Computed example of a mutant assay.
Amino acid sequence: MSTYSKELEVAELAVQRATLLTKKVFHEKAKGTLSKDDKSPVTIGDFGAQALIIHAIKQNFPDDEVVGEEEASSLRDDHKLRDQIWALVESTRLADPSAEKIIGGPIPTVDAMLDAIDAGNSAGGSKGRIWALDPIDGTKGFLRGGQYAVCLALMVDGDVKVGVLGCPNLPVDDSAPLSADVGVDQTDSDGKGVLFSAVAGQGATSRPLGTAGLGQSQPIHMKPVKDISQATFCESVEAGHSSHGDQSAIASKLGITKQSVRMDSQAKYGSIARGAGDIYLRLPVSATYQEKIWDHAAGDLIVREAGGQVTDSLGRRLDFSKGRTLAENRGVVAAPAAVHGHVLEVVKEVLAKK
């Protein structure tokens, strides 16, 4: 048994089951959308996926903590919405009973579902075993029919040890190049749906998302960049999430003329980890904004285990030990290890002129 083998299996099966739930919601015109205090949207899919994943974690690792994006107070007041989510959760099963058993079987009651959602209330930190969970990363992409990801990572004493990303709208084929329109008008039809995984020190893999047990995995690696001017550049769709202007200036200084690929969620991390893209930048748009750990923990590990380097805009490793946010970091620069230093130099040069 390899180190963290059980954690990896539980995480992969839990994320796979949660993606089945999100796919059901993805095809509905009405997604039960609410607005949170920070004006960001949340759907019945977010709540349902969080319940399923935290239930699986607590069934297998009852003493572990979870930093989850959602909480259930609105559902305790809105019984109609609560019942919608419960119906979704009850209907979502893996087709393989042995796989279902590994992740703890079905959630027994509505109250247990609400308690599971609320169990994502860990403050995070530098001690112990803490999972970082984003049940639907890229909710705006999810709502507009673009890319989204179900994201889960285990941190031990602040260091990410296991990372899993479920990306239902990315192609299974690791060699499929990214098209400029990959962030819009997507489907989860045949040939789509990939599960990216990594364990610290053991490399990164991809496998097709399925409906039962886990499919066959294969190792993934970042693509060597022989000519950086030919690199494929990934960035967020939302200008409020990342500075498109700064990123355009950086691309220009690197000699990159290809149109950047804009997509929501940690699907960007998975895409560059398997060589479909090359560089991912997320540069701050506000001096006070702090990235959330659940938006980066799984992707950070997967890219590094695939041969990449991930730092902030000052060259510091992302620090997941400071609580629920990357309080000590500014932005994200992810690229193949061989060219990361050059990309970072240009990032610093452009940001220094601001």
Rank of each mutant, 00 (worst) to 15 (best):
T92A: 11
L165F: 09
A153Y: 01
E100N: 06
F142L: 11
M1Q: 10
T325N: 13
T325D: 10
A327Y: 09
I279H: 10
G245P: 00
A116G: 03
N121T: 11
K31G: 10
V199H: 00
K24S: 09
K127H: 13
G203F: 01
R330W: 03
G145R: 05
G331S: 07
G105E: 06
S236I: 00
V15K: 04
G203C: 05
V339P: 03
G215P: 10
A335F: 06
I117L: 04
S197M: 04
T139V: 11
R129N: 15
D78N: 13
G191M: 08
A95G: 15
L281V: 07
E235I: 08
D174I: 15
P168G: 07
G275I: 11
A212N: 11
E12M: 12
A99H: 07
V199P: 01
G201S: 01
S252E: 14
G104H: 04
V110I: 15
A200Y: 05
I279Q: 09
A87S: 12
T205W: 12
P284W: 06
P171D: 11
K268R: 15
K226Q: 12
V225L: 12
E328C: 00
I117T: 05
S175N: 14
A337G: 07
N60L: 01
S260K: 14
I117F: 04
K31S: 09
K140H: 08
K39V: 04
P106L: 03
S179V: 13
G210H: 04
V162K: 03
D157L: 03
I53R: 10
A200K: 14
T19H: 02
G315P: 08
G308V: 07
V310I: 11
E28F: 07
P284F: 05
L214V: 09
I272Y: 09
M263E: 08
W131F: 13
Q84M: 08
S40W: 05
V343C: 09
A297V: 08
G203D: 04
A99Y: 07
S126P: 08
K31W: 11
W86K: 12
S229C: 00
I279E: 08
